[in-house]
Computed example of a mutant assay.
Amino acid sequence: MSTDSKLKINQLLSSHPSGIVYLSSWLVTQGYSLDLQKRYRKSDWFTSIGTGAMIRSGEDVGYEGAIYALQKQAGLLIHPGGKTALALLGKSHYLELSQKRATLFGGKAERLPAWCVRYDWGIKLDYHSSSFLPSDIGLTEIELKTFSIKVSNAARALMECLYLAPKKQTLLECYQLMEGLNNLRPDLIQNLLENCSSIKVKRLFLYMAEKANHSWFQHIKTEIIDLGSGKRSIVEDGIYNRKYKITVPKELENGEL
């Protein structure tokens, strides 16, 4: 390898954090041609993890390093959400969380690339492409060991849990999570609720917030939030709540948690 090539690879590696994925298409825009990338792999600087993606040889890269690349290099808004985001934010330490799954959300038109789906991250990725919330609100930047990524803030993360309920997330667990969120900012919640298109999520969120008796709930302007019309049967054999017109688990409505 030429001296110029070695200088370029040293510059690349020294200017970027360890533990991340490098996208081939992004590297091209940074002046690293496909031919040069091939030489770097041949010289064992990089190791391919699938078409269009590489990691630094010898590094143990987690799924967070893939999220970093998707956000910072590809400009996507795919992010850890739901319980995974709450765990990363330190909001769900009292719940038994599966260490074998990571919940990810992205916009309606966003997809996980094949290399991300097929690579063994040591954890299963549960990806949900949805538009019930705008992709660009309710996200917060968190610092990991060597880099930062965007994840759902606590309010958005809980709404994502409710979006998955009751099929992939129990409502009782959602309520346990809600109980721990006593210091949310009303203005951020208001923005999310006004921009949320899921009637189910909005009704459940407000129902649980009121039931948990959080002080911030009193500052939510529920009258300007579109809660739709008609009844919503969320679960079978539940109890009907007249205020929010939803059928919820008996244990939840009766406080038998």
Rank of each mutant, 00 (worst) to 15 (best):
L104W: 04
I137A: 08
I67Q: 15
W26V: 01
K168R: 15
I224F: 01
R185M: 06
K200S: 11
V248H: 05
I67W: 12
N183T: 00
R203S: 02
G180M: 04
V151N: 06
A53K: 08
A114R: 13
A87M: 00
G180C: 05
W121M: 11
A154N: 00
A53W: 14
L172W: 00
L177V: 10
L171N: 07
L188H: 00
S2A: 10
Y175S: 06
I239H: 14
D136Q: 10
G90R: 08
L162F: 15
Y240V: 09
D60I: 03
T222M: 02
E223F: 08
L95R: 13
D237Q: 12
L89I: 03
S98F: 09
T103P: 01
K211C: 08
A102P: 04
G255H: 05
E173G: 08
E59V: 02
L158V: 11
V21A: 04
G82R: 02
G31Q: 01
W45C: 09
V151Y: 12
G50Y: 07
L164I: 04
G138L: 11
K167R: 07
K108E: 10
L164C: 14
L162W: 14
P80L: 08
L76A: 00
L7V: 15
I123G: 09
S48C: 07
V248T: 09
L88W: 02
V21M: 15
L23I: 07
S18R: 06
F147P: 03
I189N: 05
I149S: 15
E96S: 14
S152L: 04
R118Q: 11
K100H: 06
A102W: 07
S135E: 11
I9K: 13
T29L: 01
G58D: 12
S229Q: 10
Q99F: 09
S24I: 10
H79W: 05
H79T: 11
A69G: 06
P166Y: 07
K42N: 09
T3W: 03
N254S: 02
H93C: 12
Q190C: 09
E236C: 15
C116L: 12
E96Q: 12
D44P: 05
C196S: 09
I149F: 12
G238P: 13
T170N: 04
Y68V: 05
Q218Y: 01
A53F: 07
T84C: 00
P249D: 10
N10D: 10
K100W: 09
K202G: 03
K243V: 14
S198D: 13
I199R: 15
L23T: 12
L112K: 08
G81F: 03
G230F: 06
Y22A: 05
P249G: 04
G50T: 06
G62D: 14
K42F: 06
R118P: 00
N191F: 07
P113V: 07
Q37V: 08
S14Y: 07
I67R: 05
Y240L: 12
I49K: 08
L23C: 01
Y22F: 15
R203T: 03
Q169M: 15
E194K: 15
S229V: 02
A87K: 11
L184G: 06
E143L: 13
T170C: 00
K243W: 14
G90W: 02
E173A: 01
A157M: 01
P113T: 07
K6C: 10
I142W: 04
A69E: 08
V201T: 10
L97G: 02
L206G: 00
K231N: 08
G82H: 02
G106Q: 06
L206Y: 01
E160N: 10
